[in-house]
């Protein structure tokens, strides 16, 4: 009997399915998100993410001193020295999101952003050479509106 009540209660509770953002998979998810941001398209909003989420790595090229700590720490070889030898480039496709490079950076040129959608059809898009000055999480990026609500 208690099992029946449990299942009945289960059936009456809020459903857990979180729908895919778009009815059909767009060619590039990141581009589609930009279109949504400009108001060109509607989407199912994803669940809010906690402020401490480890998403894609953000890299401030200007601040980087090229000490190479992150090169030694990266377990998956996602960080490579760039052509001018004093900076690095990050291949998000190899990144395992462990965050050890962020820990090791003496000048805080690296941070884990809360951008977690990073699929793309083009591999070259995944190379990160610079993401500009680092924003604190929740400061004017795509998902922050969701979090404040």
């Amino acid at each position: 009997m208690s099992t029946l009540f449990f299942l009945l209660r289960q059936a009456c509770r809020k459903r857990l399915t979180n729908l895919f953002p778009f009815p059909h998979m767009p060619e590039s998810l990141i581009e589609a998100l930009h279109v949504v941001q400009e108001g060109g398209m509607e989407m199912n909003r994803p669940l809010p993410t906690p402020p401490s989420l480890w998403g894609k790595v953000a890299y401030n090229r200007e601040r980087c001193t090229g000490c190479g700590n992150c090169l030694e720490r990266c377990p998956s070889g996602a960080i490579e020295p760039s052509a001018d030898k004093k900076k690095v480039e990050i291949d998000i496709a190899f990144c395992c999101f462990c965050g050890r490079c962020v820990d090791s950076c003496p000048v805080s040129a690296l941070a884990m952003s809360d951008e977690f959608l990073c699929s793309s059809l083009d591999r070259r898009e995944m190379r990160l050479a610079d993401s500009g000055p680092l924003r604190l999480s929740g400061e004017g990026d795509l998902w922050s509106l969701e979090r404040k609500r």
Binding site: T49, P50, S52, L53, W54, C98, G99, R100, D103, M112
Partner: peptide, 17 residues
Amino acid sequence: DMLEGLTGKRSNCGVAA
């Protein structure tokens, strides 16, 4: 959710150092 809130990830939380 708790793990995600505390560490930023749901699994492979990377707590150990």
